[in-house]
Write a protein that binds this DNA or RNA. Structure first.
Lengths: 132, 132
DNA sequence: TTAATCCATACTTAATTAGTAGGAGTTAGA
DNA sequence: TCTAACTCCTACTAATTAAGTATGGATTAA
């Protein structure tokens, strides 16, 4: 069971922005500091922008900034933007109308809830230097 | 973030054995009931056997049985046999001597602990019909 | 006008997961 | 003692997903 490295890179980039909040930073700055390829990071930031987690300004002095205060952004949000909804198992087999009868299903449901609880319990402010 | 379907199949097979405990069942019985390919299941059971979660008897009336009581087997054990150690992120980048400084690392560490806590908190006895 | 940036999409490569194949070894029961 | 029903072993293939790259257009501060 692993999260993708996309999630890791995305989280790092967002933490980087959280440290600059409310200022903006360019992709090349973030990419350099976090050692992510510029092109790869561009795509990740595009997803964050579409989900209104960051705002961008175009043109020469452009860049990205976090929209909300770091204390108002949960790690869970960041992860779900990158990885899609958190649910640790895609039901195997055909019709999962058996879902509530299915013993292993109970495990995945419970686990999914715990993971969400954990990830939504951590705010970006806890991961940066100055707490805002 | 997903567990593999291997984990799902493996768990289903073990739950099946837990329901039969302390009796044994053949692979073909389990495979039929849980709708898993016999050959695939053979390999999964091999891993469980090597880790002393189940015992096998060879020959015509052979099969597999759970070694411990269902109430003494945690779901976490089953999962870790199939998927390896639970840790939600393989540290990205070169030298992770930065580990304790790394803000995102803190997330994965905490999350890993929670996942383990959850999965080791669920016993097979909670997933079967008669509690043994 | 130009250089630095964001933005969009298509493509390629690498890695992992899922599933299959074939056969050797074992044993209860006819 | 023969055979059918099993476990056991290892290599292989196919499918899917993740990771990373390439190309170029649109926008805008200086």
């Amino acid at each position: 069971m692993k999260f993708s490295t996309r999630a890791e890179y995305g989280l790092k980039a967002i933490i980087n922005l959280a440290n600059a909040y409310p200022k903006q930073r360019s992709i090349s700055e973030i990419a350099k500091e976090e050692r992510i390829s510029i092109k790869y990071l561009e795509r990740l930031m595009g997803e964050f922008r579409k989900k209104n987690l960051v705002k961008s300004s175009k043109g020469k002095a452009g860049g990205y900034a976090l929209i909300r205060k770091p204390s108002r952004v949960a790690v869970g949000e960041v992860i779900e933007i990158i990885e899609g909804p958190i649910s640790p198992m895609k039901c195997v087999g055909e019709d999962c109308a058996l879902r509530h009868t299915c013993p292993s299903g109970r495990v995945w449901t419970k686990l999914g809830e715990q993971i969400k609880k954990t990830l939504y319990g951590i705010k970006l402010s806890e991961l940066i230097n100055s707490k805002i």
